[in-house]
Amino acid sequence: MTTTAPARRTAAAPTSTPRPKPRRRDGLAGWGFFAPFGVLFAVFMLWPIGHGIYLSFTDQSLTGSGGGFIGFANYLEAFGEAEMWQSIGNTLWFTLLSTVPLVVIALIMALLVEQGLPGKWLWRLAFFMPYLLASTVVSLIWIWLFTPQLGAINTVLTGIGLPAQPWLQDPSLSMVSIVIATVWWTVGFNFLLYIAAIQGIPEQHYEAASLDGAGKWRQLFSITLPQLAPTTVVVVILQVLASLKVFDQIYQMMNQVVTPSTQSAIVYIFDAGFTGYRFGYASAVSYIFFAVVLLVSLVQFRITARKGA
């Protein structure tokens, strides 16, 4: 589905010759050029995909024991496991909680920066720099900020007379805390995509509008935002896919001991496979989760397709 986005921008390349027709059969060269990628792709992508399906029907253990064929037992067990469903629920919840601010704040940032205020490079640096940090670094920094007694956030809160919060310790707060850190970390990526899109809006639109006497707000709502709609679709789709795969921040910020209220699907798979040794079961959950990801993508595709129509 990643191939469905508007292709209208692809036109402008050095020169746009019509797509070259392959002239003759150059089988050997073709395979030769494809081979390095093809071999790696087959060995480290296709084989694991296939082997994972096989594993999901066995009771294979990390320790090497087991491995016998057990039919759909893993799938049946997973379907009946409340904790698995909760982890998928948590993942969807995290996706919702994070996607909204990650898109809205990124858009606001991009719109503000593109107002032409001085210090453009500084704004870009500020908003984008966190994206360059490894998840581990982000987690270390935010664990420190969230620390109950010594943390900067609680120090500020108590300083202005608000109660300190057990950010990561309280099961009802920890997911929100992780979302806050995540927004800080990755909003810069969407911000850049919006910047690129805003700069791609043809100048003439604005010139025509201001000749018609349209004010700044009018221009924002009648030109900029509609022009950004296709970008927003892509940004939302990419963001949802990225958020569904959340593992790092949760695993790290919960001090690697994940509570039921923050356990994401990937964390659950990791736990089942590597802490519980159950490779067969974890494989089955992997494919169930993959099906969920496909389903979410399909729903998104449907929605955007209908909007487009």
């Binding site: 589905m1 990643t2 191939t3 792709f41 480290f44 992508m45 296709l46 084989w47 694991p48 995909i49 082997h51 994972g52 594993l55 294979q60 896919l241 569904l244 795969k245 593992f247 990937i266 798979i269 990791f270 496979g273 590597f274 490779f279 974890a282 494989s283 992997s286 494919y287 989760f289 993959f290 990801v293 496909l294 993508s297």
Partner: peptide
């Protein structure tokens, strides 16, 4: 191109086995 849809995270178990 279809494999773009497969998140690498769901392959950790078979890949590790490999």
């Amino acid at each position: 191109i279809a494999s773009i849809m497969v998140p690498p995270q769901v392959l950790i178990i078979p890949l590790y086995y490999q």
